[in-house]
């Protein structure tokens, strides 16, 4: 009896997931192939979703670019540099960062991060590096730009990168570390020879999972970013490509008719993108913590 019940629960999971995909496809289909006359804005679905995909990938990549080195450094600090007794508590503190609701990160980003960045960092980036397309244009005075969103997203995905990297760094065999030190390596040389190669797959899968989270993150972006329609490379201005998730959150409450279906279809696209990224992360993680022999 119990066996049947628990098997049924397991099968339920499969049904739910199939349901998620099915409902999205059923409701999203008309959004892709439906009559665009009845929708507001763009001519066809690709034109509509293009800038959103660009914005989603751009914001998430910025976040990963900022968070990955920091996350790995913090993981190393906790696993190899911090005093042993403190290490667990410090790890707990970083995990706490993951527990803060995204809407709180959003309003914190607008009230604290945006003014600090647009007051101190953005003007100098804009003046000195404006030959790069990323830093050109008129900077946003409110700071509600792509870079601010990227910074806040980076803070949000740091805990997951740190947690997974830390886990794999800690699994480095002690003998590898001691062998390296015994040969006269400094601590950093030991880390480069023993810890980093061993933890490489962990770092990559942590980064991919972080990227997956950044791609799907909604509220922080919806509150911080001031969106426009189109493709924008500059990260400092008021004109930014919106992300898929944030666009749904902003438009959905007021949408009606086929616009709703089109938004659901963009959700399907987002699901596809995160699915690919996460599948990639899992493949690396499952290939194992076998970096040691590589």
């Amino acid at each position: 009896m119990f066996s049947g019940l628990s098997r049924a629960a397991g099968i339920n999971i499969l049904i739910i997931l199939a349901g998620v995909a099915a409902f999205l496809i059923v409701e999203g289909r008309t959004g892709i192939f439906g009559d665009t006359e009845e929708m507001s804005g763009s001519d066809n679905f690709l034109q509509y979703v293009g800038p959103l995909v660009f914005g989603t990938v751009y914001a998430a990549s910025l976040a990963l670019l900022i968070a990955a080195p920091l996350g790995v450094a913090v993981a190393l600090y906790i696993s190899h540099y911090a005093p042993r007794r403190l290490a667990q508590t410090l790890g707990y503190l970083v995990d706490l960062l993951a527990a803060i609701p995204s809407v709180v990160f959003g309003i914190w980003g607008v009230t604290v991060v945006a003014p600090i960045l647009s007051g101190n960092l953005y003007p100098s980036l804009n003046e000195n590096l404006d030959f790069l397309p990323f830093f050109s244009g008129t900077i946003s005075t409110s700071g509600r730009s792509m870079l601010t969103a990227g910074v806040v997203l980076a803070v949000m995905i740091l805990p997951i990168i740190t947690a997974i990297s830390r886990e794999s760094f800690m699994q480095t065999p002690r003998l590898h570390e001691e062998a390296s030190l015994a040969l006269g390596a400094t601590k950093w040389e030991m880390i480069r020879q023993a810890v980093l190669p061993y933890g490489r797959s962990g770092v990559i899968s942590g980064c991919m999972l972080g990227l997956g989270r950044a791609l799907g993150e909604t509220m922080a972006v919806a509150i911080i970013l001031s969106p426009s329609d189109g493709y924008f490379w500059s990260v400092l201005t008021n004109q930014n490509s919106n992300t898929i998730a944030s666009n749904i959150a902003l438009k959905f409450p007021e949408a009606y008719g086929l616009d709703v279906n089109r938004l659901i279809a963009t959700g399907l696209v987002l699901f596809g993108i995160t699915f690919l990224v996460n599948a990639f992360a899992r493949r690396i993680a499952n290939a194992g913590f076998s970096g040691a022999d590589g």
Partner: peptide, 17 residues
């Protein structure tokens, strides 16, 4: 594993759908 990676807004869309 796949469910772990569902973006939260997609979960909302699916319940709505």
């Amino acid at each position: 594993d796949v469910m772990t990676g569902i973006p939260s807004i997609v979960a909302g869309l699916c319940a709505y759908a």
